[in-house]
Nucleic acid binder design. Structure first.
Lengths: 368, 368
DNA sequence: CTGAAAGCGCTAACAC
DNA sequence: GTGTTAGCGCTTTCAG
């Protein structure tokens, strides 16, 4: 109708079509439902009905509208919609680092559940920095995500209380919140570590080194408790020098291992328990370097917390206490959507079990 | 209606505070700038100024406002803001699967760049399904993300033309778009594969098997071209039965390898080129199984396309043609933000180089 | 079956 | 310095 041969450009409302200097008609901005309504010669509300698949529109009218939509390349503006409805159909995920295999599996599982519920996923990494966690979580709140899953880095989640009070669904994954009541999904870190260490003890080891993360992190703390519990149960004394906590920097791992294993260690260990993925890999790399460099003596027994790809292809294959990052992500997301569908109960905590996977590195006896 | 005790509920404006049956005052919904303004005894615009750090507010007034904000637990509604400003401060990423290590590294890099630009990241997995890709991409468009990075699964991206026309910034990563002009960041797949295969040829191999993805995928096709180019250059004839394309299912890999390597193969190969991560791992796993089961003959030489963690710890360590997923993600995101900051030029294609990493598996001669 | 009017919470443009 | 008004694009409510 508009865009006739000679007729002047439509002057009515701020045009999303505009003439550009000696160019053809070019789209600027985006067409709105109003534009579609005008083009189809129907009312605004009718367009809304068609776009949202609401009943009560004559098929012929609907066809008219759909044609206008296609011609104009209209796409509903979900921000405007959300402003009215209050629902985003989006959830947020804050974790340490998406690039970490453990968290990327978790992310994938969350995303899958979100998709099944028609939601999109906002993800943000905290780099394990409490301030970044808060920045990210609050940014997601400002977008009015429907729900939030957090793998916390912070030691205090009071800052989220206003959000929870305002009705935001929230689930903590892998580590519990501090100073806040919310649904939580954990892994049984203490029991897992205890089982792993008991496994080494069962194979005759009494002197077992422990390499873990900073004790500041909840999971790390729990795993260390598990180690101590297993040792205590077996009445195996623990030399505190066997315990090392901190980031798995290659040179630190190197000095730690030469302290624990020799040469020249005044109380060498015969087995190692590595308390996470990254530590395990760093230790394996250093053990490989040592065996290439030094005499060909057999390495220590080793059990790692957390499974990783190719653990089965190394020689020896690596025995691990496996967590289930996919289950963790799925459970967290399901809890979240249960809340979103109106389920109202006191906050729950779900604890997922671990599984000991015997592959070889943990089943060797102490060397003579 | 409200089940109050006796007094009628406050009738002023739709209260975000409301009395609940025999409970204390409880927040319902969320406070708005208007609520903050009322509480602080200032005008709406003043609150807006404080929230957005705009100048021209008396420090004392600002303090008043900030106190009201804290008391009310106010958080700006970014959807409303966006409806006005037209900017989301969010970008979208559509890829095959966040849980895949290659893509999770890419995602991490994109997220980092986004954060540096004050943007949040929406991520969505397509499972390599064209329809899902479109669904996800369009959902992100409906949210009016400022820009979109796509690792395409579809064979036709015409459906995105209206978005591009409307001014949405868009970058394709890892694979080029079809029927659409847009910035693209690729890896030099053909050259990388060619170099990897030439490396095997240089070590005396003439009979080299190729195991790759479905030829439908751009990267897979390019790598196969690289294989053929290297073989042709060395005047090494290619037996088409050496080439297998498809998903790396364990039992398929098993039958492929027994066909290529024997026992009983009528034209066994002495080396393998595996064209991606997942194929490489599947092949390694099968080779390990074979060497456990069968006679202790040395395995074939092997070069894989795409690096993976622990490749250096296997024995033999695995020689690979390494791509740079982090560089791919970073470059794509930087291109996107360059567009968003108004840079206007014809679509560009950036191609990133690969690096051959020699570790052992690719440097063994053909067995007699 | 269809449409007109109001308003979600915010910011831009302009008063005061 | 501060407040007032209008309106972003949509859904809700209610009238035809």
């Amino acid at each position: 109708m508009h865009s006739g041969a000679t007729a002047p450009p439509p002057a009515d409302r701020a045009g999303w079509e505009r003439r550009v200097a000696d160019g053809p008609r070019i789209r600027v901005g985006r067409p709105t439902m109003n534009d579609v309504a005008a083009r189809a010669g129907v009312g605004l509300k009718t367009v809304s009905r068609v776009v949202n698949g609401e009943p009560g529109v004559l098929p012929s009218t609907a066809a008219l509208v759909r044609r206008a939509i296609d011609e104009l390349g209209f796409r509903r503006n979900d921000s405007a919609r959300q402003l009215r409805t209050g629902r985003t159909a989006g959830i947020g995920l804050v974790l340490e680092d998406v690039a970490d295999p453990f968290y990327s599996l978790l992310t994938g599982a969350v995303e899958e559940v979100a998709h099944a519920h028609g939601s999109l996923l906002f993800s943000a990494s905290s780099q394990d920095d409490p301030r970044l966690e808060a920045e990210m979580a609050l940014a997601l709140c400002a977008r009015r995500v429907d729900g939030l899953i957090i793998v916390p880095a912070a030691q205090d989640h009071g800052y989220l209380a206003p959000e929870v009070d305002a009705g935001l669904a929230m689930v903590f994954a892998d580590r519990p919140p501090v100073n806040l009541a919310a649904d939580t999904v954990l892994v049984d870190n203490a029991a897992g570590a205890r089982q792993g260490v008991a496994h080494l003890l069962g194979h005759g080891h009494r002197r077992i080194g422990y390499l873990g993360d900073s004790a500041r992190i909840y999971t790390s703390e729990q795993r260390l408790l598990g180690y101590r519990a297993a040792m205590a149960e077996a009445a195996a004394p623990v030399d505190e020098s066997w315990i090392t906590l901190g980031a798995p920097e290659p040179h630190l791992v190197r000095s730690t291992l030469s302290r624990l294993l020799g040469p020249g260690a005044h109380s060498p260990v015969t087995a190692l328990f590595t308390a996470n993925n990254r530590v395990t890999v760093a230790v394996l790399r250093e053990l490989a370097r040592r065996s290439r460099a030094g005499p060909d003596e057999p390495g220590p027994a080793l059990v790692g917390f957390d499974d990783f790809e190719l653990a089965d292809l190394l020689s020896p294959a690596v025995t691990v206490v496996a967590q289930d990052p996919v289950g963790l992500g799925r459970t967290s997301a399901e809890l979240l959507f249960a809340r979103l569908s109106g389920q109202d109960a006191p906050p729950r905590t779900v604890t997922l079990p671990t599984v000991l996977v015997q592959r070889g590195s943990g089943e060797v006896p102490p060397r003579a």
